[in-house]
């Protein structure tokens, strides 16, 4: 019994009707089914309310206040849009954080996906040791999010780190990568790209679903490998590419651990690694401006939602669904 027996899931398509139990009569059984439903759902409902929905609304409220975690709630003052005004007009760290985060996502995400797709294509054909390679390339995506690996990474790209020694072998003089504001963010991007294994595995699963007949037909028509890639692989894989793009973009915006470790929690050098979530952490939990941090959080949420909407609307032009369904 393998998990792959589960039917393919339509992830971002909303309520795809989770197969209702047949309705047996009215009254008794129906009410019993309702009761059972809510009993089974009760932990989730409690979590939705207590951990997600109410805190979200609270955070919206706090974003209009000057709450600072030090004074009691009774002294919380409603300051209207002041937090948002400060953010957009007089807080340079906000714009730094936006710039750093957007730059990071714009460069690291496409490169990571390209690496993932490239290697997936190489591993798509069965050959001896393919499982070993798949595991090898997947492993970094499990290790890469940890503090331990961030520490290793930062030290590899130190002035005296292994990377510079390696460059030295070729007579190239390196930079103090992590301490140089021109290169510190690139170091973080490299760490993100190094973790291409997770999208790679998703690509591999997608490649397996492309019917071989399509390639046979294309090859009969005289299409070479490149043309087959353009005309068969890319369109057939586009839903999976789209899925990975959305997932990795949203993840990319949330990078925190490595930036925190690299900069010792400051976003330095010179704000060059001030990822948005790190800025939020500094404002809310170092400087204790929790009202302001809530405003930052809501701008973040709206930005991510907007980016997702934009991705979905452009997706209509290049994502091809084999079943012809317009999603």
């Amino acid at each position: 019994m393998a998990i792959s027996t589960a039917p393919p899931a339509a992830l971002p398509t909303g309520p795809a009707s989770p197969g209702p139990a047949s309705r047996r009569g009215r009254g008794g059984p129906r009410r019993r089914e309702n009761l059972a439903g809510y009993v089974f759902l009760s932990p989730w409902l409690l979590g939705l309310m207590g951990i997600t929905a109410i805190p979200m609304l609270l955070s919206l409220y706090l974003s209009f206040t000057n709450y600072d975690a030090l004074s009691p709630f009774s002294e919380v003052e409603w300051i209207g849009l002041d937090n948002y005004r400060t953010m957009f007009t007089s807080d340079p760290s906000f714009w730094h954080a936006v710039e750093v985060t957007v730059t990071f996502a714009l460069i690291a995400v496409p490169l990571k996906l390209a690496a993932a797709l490239g290697v997936a294509l190489l591993l798509n054909r069965a050959f001896r040791g393919v499982g070993l390679f798949r595991g090898l390339f997947y492993l970094p995506s499990l290790l890469g999010g940890s503090v331990a690996l961030a520490i290793v990474w930062v030290n590899m790209f130190n002035r005296d780190g292994a990377f510079n020694s390696l460059l030295g072998l070729f007579g190239v003089e390196g930079a103090p990568w992590v301490n140089d504001p021109r290169w510190s963010l690139e170091t973080l991007m490299a760490l993100a790209i190094w973790q291409f294994g997770a999208p790679m595995v998703i690509f591999l699963a997608g490649l397996k679903q492309i019917p071989v007949e399509l390639y046979e037909a294309a090859s009969v028509d005289g299409a070479n490998a490149w043309r087959q890639f353009r005309a068969v692989t890319l369109p057939m894989l586009s839903p999976v590419i789209f899925f990975n793009l959305v997932l990795e973009t949203i993840n990319g915006f949330q990078g925190f651990t490595a930036a925190f470790v690299l900069s010792n929690g400051t976003g330095g050098p010179v704000d060059s690694t001030l990822m948005y979530t790190l800025n939020l952490y500094i404002k809310g939990f170092t400087e204790l401006q929790m009202g302001y941090a809530s405003a930052l959080a809501w701008v973040f949420l709206v930005a991510i939602a907007l980016i997702t909407v934009v991705l979905f609307s452009t997706g209509r032009f290049w994502v091809h669904y084999a079943d012809g369904e317009d999603r």
Binding site: L11, P12, G14, P15, S17, P18, P20, A21, S22, R23, E33, N34, A36, G37, Y38, F40, L41, W44, L45, L48, I51, T52, I54, P55, M56, L58, S59, L62, I250, F253, Q254, T277, L280, G284, M290, A293, S294, A297, W298, F300, L301, I304, T308
Partner: peptide
Amino acid sequence: LDFTGRKLFFATMLGTIMLPIHVIIVPQ
């Protein structure tokens, strides 16, 4: 199970999959 509001709750659940923890961390 077929209970009232299942579809709505299911859609809500899907919506929370990608919700960044940072949005709720302060009130939490």
